[in-house]
């Protein structure tokens, strides 16, 4: 990148390092940090939406809907989440391909489960076999985002369900006695008040979400873990201008520091938000603030 990088072998330690850390491959690892941030930016609101749907359907008076909501909340508690990650990525992919297959090739005779293979007709493949590389990567990333949203949606649903039950019940009864319908009670009384109760759980969830991002690697996305393994491995002078030994330890040390900083900053910001929200609330936290002032 720098003009003095023409002949790395002749450089001093510091200049060599500066050149080494700005090679094209290293740019890829810096961009993959943005992949992580993008994942967080898309997943957090989507998961919150899924969670809201899950929690409100668990409260529903229509039995099948409420069973569905409760099952969605309960299912993630007994099983390791990475099993869900590995499961949903394949299952969703097959689901999409199967739907496209049913629509696009209605006269396909053969079974789609042929022994140990999953076969759909060529035009139903996702993405199409002849599409460019970036389409494959984007599709993989979107599958990963959807998987994250489903799993974290269940966690968020759990938090929101608890928060909805924490809203004092006599508030709801008062609203009903004023003649509000169930829908009105839900939107005008319950939803605005539940956020204070949900925030500690949701901020915990945000920290967990940050710490779950390296699992993108398992879903086949070229994320920071992938690049740290690639770049850190021992390189000989035959393949690169910057030969070095096995540096994977140092790359992962870097990632460790990155995540520590990220969680620390989030913690500080969320504490600030919580302080703002509890201000003037009739809770223990609000009371403590009032006494301190």
């Amino acid at each position: 990148m720098f003009s003095f990088c023409v002949d790395p072998a002749s450089l001093g330690d510091f200049a060599w390092m500066a050149c080494y850390l700005t090679t094209g491959k290293h740019m890829a690892i810096y961009t993959s940090v943005f992949t992580v941030l993008l994942l967080l930016a898309i997943t957090a609101p989507t998961a919150l939406a899924f969670g809201f749907l899950g929690a409100s359907s668990a409260r529903s008076h229509f039995a099948p809907l409420s069973w569905f909501g409760k099952a969605y909340i309960a299912i993630v508690r007994g099983v390791p989440d990475i099993a869900f990650f590995l499961f949903f990525v394949i299952a969703l992919d097959q689901l999409f391909e199967w739907i496209r297959h049913e629509i696009k090739c209605p006269d396909w005779e053969a079974d789609i489960w042929q022994g140990n293979d999953f076969v759909v007709c060529d035009i139903a493949k996702l993405p199409l076999g002849n599409s460019p590389q970036w389409v494959h990567e984007t599709y993989g990333f979107l599958l990963a985002v959807l998987t994250f949203a489903i799993v974290f949606g269940a966690f968020a649903a759990n938090v929101l369900y608890g928060a909805m039950r924490a809203v004092p019940h006599n508030q709801l009864e008062t609203a009903e006695s004023y003649g509000m319908t169930r829908r009105q009670v839900f939107w005008r009384i319950l939803v605005p008040q539940m956020w204070v109760f949900a925030l500690p759980g949701l901020s915990n969830l945000w920290m967990v979400l940050i710490k779950a991002t390296p699992l993108l690697f398992l879903l086949g996305v070229e994320d920071i873990v992938y690049w740290a393994r690639e770049l850190g491995g021992a390189k000989t002078a035959r393949f690169t201008d910057y030969p070095h030994g096995d540096w994977r330890m140092w790359y992962f040390f870097g990632l460790l520091v990155f995540y520590l900083l990220f969680t620390r900053v989030s913690e500080i910001v969320l504490d600030k938000v919580m302080q703002k929200l509890t201000h003037g609330q009739a809770t223990l936290g609000g009371e403590a603030q009032r006494k301190a002032a």
Binding site: K211, A212, V225, A228, F252
Partner: peptide, 12 residues
Amino acid sequence: SPLFIQFFFAYF
């Protein structure tokens, strides 16, 4: 920090 990264770091 994520346990996943801790495993990787410790292994290397």
